[in-house]
Simulated assay, not measured.
Amino acid sequence: MWHLLEPLHALLYYAPEAFDEAAALGFDTAERWPSYFAWRSAPLGAPGPARVASAFYSFSPAMVARYVPEAGEGSGEAPAAVLAARLRAVDRTYRAVLGEDTVKSPELAEAAALARRAAEAAGTAGRPLAAANAALPWPEAPHLVLWQAATILREHRGDGHLAALLVAGLDPVEALVSFAAIGAAPEPVFESRGWSAAEWAAARERLTARGILDADGAVTDEGRALRAEVEQRTDELAAAPWAALGPEGTARLAELLGGPWLSAIGSGLLPAENTLGIGKV
């Protein structure tokens, strides 16, 4: 379900319509990070870089500080304006990528209703990003309901993933180094998270000392087992919404998402290589 829903959420970070909305708010759109941090952190209010770095986990705090203003800077209405623009961006993007016929179809409305049921069953205790998105009012249009549900569910899973990493004793940069080592994506792709070469090398040394990597930086059997444990725990922590929806409802939602998923993947907007595994099955 994550593989089906994540591309529908992630279009926001790459679509030209989203960059248009970000530019109208005054964000620099020469690169995607100013709008990415704005879109994703807006449900938290105006948290400042320290809280954003904590919630996002894998990004270097130094990188976050470049794009997220200190709490209290700027207008107190800014988060509300960003949230409104975020929905406009999704509306325009879905109409462009999925097509008007799909946006208005009964199948998409059914998918939105099922996804909302799952999202509303997602527990948010100890999950700050899931809780912040779940606290937002639901939009009326089914395609926006689908996007908001996908967002709650992906942040619910993501918050649980961070808990699994903490239990495994993997700090933010170690999580990336170990993820790259098992072939999730080439190391240069993970440079987008802003860690310096020295920080990356130090993390590799710590993982080598633990026996997670060997002397050449390749993952060991122990390292593969640890990453498998992280993924299994992540799945377990993400299971409650789907248990609540039930096997029939979940299977029906998966069926309904096939067309929109293909449209999102086929749009060419999402990068072929990324740190999230978008598009891999």
Rank of each mutant, 00 (worst) to 15 (best):
R116K: 11
D171C: 10
T102H: 14
P142M: 03
G158S: 08
R86G: 10
G158Q: 10
A175R: 11
A78W: 12
G123M: 04
V97A: 02
A131I: 01
A134L: 07
W147L: 10
G169W: 07
E100K: 13
A175N: 14
G169M: 14
P142R: 06
A135F: 02
D101P: 03
E155H: 12
D159C: 10
A113Q: 11
R88W: 01
E155S: 11
E100C: 07
T151I: 00
R157H: 08
A84F: 10
E107M: 09
L162P: 12
A85C: 03
D101I: 06
V68Q: 02
F59W: 11
V173D: 11
Q148V: 08
Y94F: 15
L83M: 07
R157C: 04
E100L: 12
A109D: 05
E120L: 10
A132F: 03
F179M: 14
A71P: 00
L170Q: 12
L146S: 04
A113H: 08
T124Q: 06
S58Q: 12
V97I: 10
V173A: 14
Q148R: 15
L108H: 01
A81T: 11
A131P: 09
E174P: 15
T102I: 12
R66G: 02
A111C: 08
N133T: 06
E77N: 11
H143Q: 08
G126S: 03
E140C: 06
D171Q: 13
A113N: 03
A111K: 00
T151R: 10
R127E: 01
E155M: 05
A80D: 13
A113C: 02
D101E: 15
V97H: 04
L153Y: 08
P139G: 07
L129W: 03
E100P: 05
A113M: 03
D159A: 10
A109P: 11
R154W: 11
V68W: 00
P172W: 11
A131V: 02
L144F: 05
G72V: 00
V103M: 06
A180G: 13
P139S: 01
D159H: 10
G158P: 14
A118R: 03
L136A: 06
V103W: 04
G126W: 04
A121D: 00
A180F: 09
K104G: 13
S75T: 09
V82F: 00
R88A: 07
P137V: 08
A135Y: 02
L114G: 00
D171E: 15
Y94N: 15
L144G: 07
P61H: 07
H143W: 10
I182R: 15
A168I: 11
D101L: 13
V145N: 00
L114F: 03
L162S: 11
R117V: 02
A89P: 09
R86C: 05
A130R: 03
R88C: 08
L153C: 06
S178L: 15
F179K: 15
A132S: 09
A111T: 02
F59I: 06
A135N: 09
E110V: 03
V64R: 05
E120P: 09
G74P: 02
V103P: 00
E100V: 12
P172C: 12
R127F: 00
R95G: 11
L165V: 09
L114H: 03
R92E: 12
P142K: 03
P172R: 09
A164T: 05
E120W: 01
G99M: 07
A131N: 02
A163S: 13
